[in-house]
Write a protein that binds this DNA or RNA. Structure first.
Lengths: 419, 419
DNA sequence: GATATTTGTTGTACGGATGAACTTATCGAG
DNA sequence: CTCGATAAGTTCATCCGTACAACAAATATC
């Protein structure tokens, strides 16, 4: 919390964000679209105040009004409010060990377009991979807008036409310097000190117009998971992302906690009981190898072996779960968040992992008797970091809505959408 | 950040707190007392606005004006503002394994009175110890106010007379349910599920009028350390409290992070490489025993042995430092805070601990090359948790200053204090 | 068709911050 | 010693955003 003077504009900005978030959250959780009165009731603001704020947001092209819908009850029918789907686009990208991809989201959080390319990036050439990503990004954006150049010009337009790009974010399996746009270290890619933003800017129109914010893959995946879980209120949990590496991210009251530099949650390099880093015990490759399978066979073969009842596979996963649980117990003891969510590869193995992880938590977490640990499975869909990256971009809009308002009047002519 | 409607009163409350904090911080860091103009410049508010806010705080008895002081420079001399020392009292208490104590602070953070009683509380009777604490608390409060009963009545009074008690807080070496006022588990005391607040309320006037907020000892000690370090801006660090047990606390941007229930930082029960909990390797008793000394001899004998150059003592401390460093590396990797502050017993052994801890951090922290870890020694004085507990009470005043304003007019008659 | 009910809007009032004078109090130059 | 420069603090008109209350609009129920 920055302690800076609160002028009157701060007030408006705060409440504008509050109203916007209310509508966006409803859309994200598939709750019925709220009316002005609903928002007023939920926020504690007056109907009058909400009305002026909503009017501003609608005029600015961030919200849209649907046709009033009959509600069976007495009273004037409410006008449902929805995020304006037509204007803003956020681009989330990811480079991971065995794939890269880009996903485009609108303000409502709906996927406008996406593309994922599978490839092996172990010890790859950063420039080559990043140029491939840049091409994919331009493609994906082209699917959502007629002309990427016109789209960045900031002209308000009708739905279906070109859109305004809010920004871009990139998920990477390693340590990043988020401000400098540099990847510091990604052991599983074999990358070190790469000027990611620079390379992307040279290779892509989108990334040069909108320099990407870099972040850890697990953090962004957790951002997406937090949204998926928001259905039942802002949750706190430790998200474990089991890809080739092992990343973790803390979600506190629905917000991802990245730490001072965004490097929090480096779980893979935690030392476990035998002195080895966790990744070498419970990582994807380690499990596959321990199960007596070829590394190239991947997780799919492990899943198959488990289904077939192969004892070595079961033992491998159980041992991995035990080590993971012990490492997570330290995390839980450190940050006092007792719910664990398994994501990535671990989600596919959850059936066999939950029990050993939970057992380890129960025995090693000091507070377990009073806040029983839980182990759940991620709800968010495939490649959550793509969604999380785009959501992290959209957070900018929510944090400072008035910066993204179109010139008033232009959007007033927009036709009403169907509910 | 609770997302609740921001009305106009929110604005005033925010800025009131901002102004108050500005003056309190200056007092805490022994910086020169700021004038209204200084506060305006620091906060970004107008001189006019600051004036009205300060007037309100002065009238309410939270701030006081000193005699204008000649500044050598041209211009009207400034009126230095200081926390009103005379009106509010915050009580911080602690029960730990080998002592208990109570400290009374005024709004400026100055110690008004304190008392510490050394005793061995291992496997003690909670009721007996807590009754002793209650008696100490009543004594300490009596030193600061003429009549504890009158003091709680909330009458504004002149400096020197009875004071208003803001509240009480109690530091405990274990897990607490802070809302319920219950100690859940304190292994080193041998206490479990103790209704601390209830016992104290029955045994003491202060605690019955002002039910104590319970918190972990390390968290509160870190709260005090954060204030001591604020001199150079809001710092982030991991505070390690080495008492009989080992506690840790996270300080982020100057604020203690307690986690969902206040149970964050349970470092002592982290499992180290050989499978034992850290406390049994690097705890006070473990070090003393490993050095070949009697447990009862305590840390003093260990310090003496180190000074005498006893090889066993040096080896014991070095081994402890190594284990501690490895455990801290996990914490640093988890929460991305690279500065460590050694407190409690560890501060006394810092000379011999810093090197092995630092070495362990350098090797195990993934981000070490880009954010070099540091290991420092706590600056705060003896028994920091007492100060931290009282400070946590004073935080209530800063968070909601208007709730603590006296009736206007009553304090206007107060004489001006000397600068 | 009258009434109740709920949504959304329209003024008016109020509280709080702002900016521009203005007053007060000191230093220093002549 | 006087005058001007300088800075702190105050006063007042103004702006801005929210609250409150009354009102208009649109539907269901009887």
């Amino acid at each position: 919390m920055k302690s800076t003077a609160a002028r009157q504009g701060t007030l408006r900005e705060l409440n504008l964000g509050l109203v916007l978030r209310e509508v966006l959250d409803a859309a994200a959780t598939h709750a019925p679209s709220p009316s002005r009165a609903d928002v007023a009731a939920a926020t504690g603001l007056t109907r009058a105040t909400v009305s002026t704020l909503v009017d501003r947001l609608v005029a600015g092209g961030l919200l849209a009004e649907c046709e009033p819908v009959a509600t069976q009850r007495a009273g004037r029918p409410a006008v449902p409010l929805v995020p304006a789907g037509g204007t803003l686009v956020a681009l989330g990208a990811e480079v991971n060990v065995d794939y890269l991809g880009v996903r485009a989201l609108d303000l409502a959080g709906h996927v406008l377009a996406e593309r994922v390319v599978e490839d092996d990036h172990r010890d790859s050439d950063p420039a080559r991979v990043l140029r491939a990503l840049a091409a994919v990004a331009d493609d994906v954006l082209a699917e959502t807008v007629g002309d990427p150049v016109a789209a960045t010009a900031g002209e308000p337009v009708a739905p279906g036409g070109p859109r305004r790009v809010v920004g871009t974010a990139l998920a990477l399996p390693g340590l990043v310097a988020r401000d400098a746009g540099t990847l510091l270290l990604a052991p599983n890619l074999g990358w070190r000190e790469v000027d990611v933003a620079g390379v992307l800017a040279d290779a892509s129109e989108v990334f040069s117009a909108h320099p990407p914010t870099l972040a850890n893959e697990a953090d962004l995946a957790a951002r997406a998971e937090a949204r998926a879980q928001r259905r039942e209120g802002a949750a706190s949990f430790v998200y474990v992302s089991g890809e080739i590496g092992i990343g973790a991210a803390l979600v506190l009251e629905g917000r991802v906690f990245g730490g001072r530099h965004g490097w929090a949650g480096e779980l893979g390099h935690t030392l476990v009981a035998d002195g080895r880093p966790l990744e070498q015990v419970a990582g994807q490759d380690a499990m596959v190898r321990a199960a007596g399978l070829e590394r190239e066979a991947g997780v799919a073969s492990l899943v198959a072996a488990l289904a077939a009842g192969a004892p070595a596979a079961h033992e491998a996963v159980r041992a991995a779960g035990e080590a993971l649980g012990a490492a997570l117990a330290n995390v839980v003891n450190t940050v006092d968040v007792s719910d664990v969510v398994l994501g990535g590869t671990y989600a596919r193995l959850a059936e066999h992992l939950v029990e050993p992880v939970l057992a380890a938590l129960r025995t090693h977490v000091l507070a377990a008797p009073w806040a029983p640990p839980t182990v759940g499975v991620a709800r968010v869909g495939d490649i959550p970091a793509l969604t999380g990256a785009a959501l992290s971009v959209l957070d900018l809009v929510i944090a400072d809505p008035s910066a993204w308002l179109d010139a008033p009047g232009a959007a007033a002519a927009l036709p009403r959408l169907a509910p």
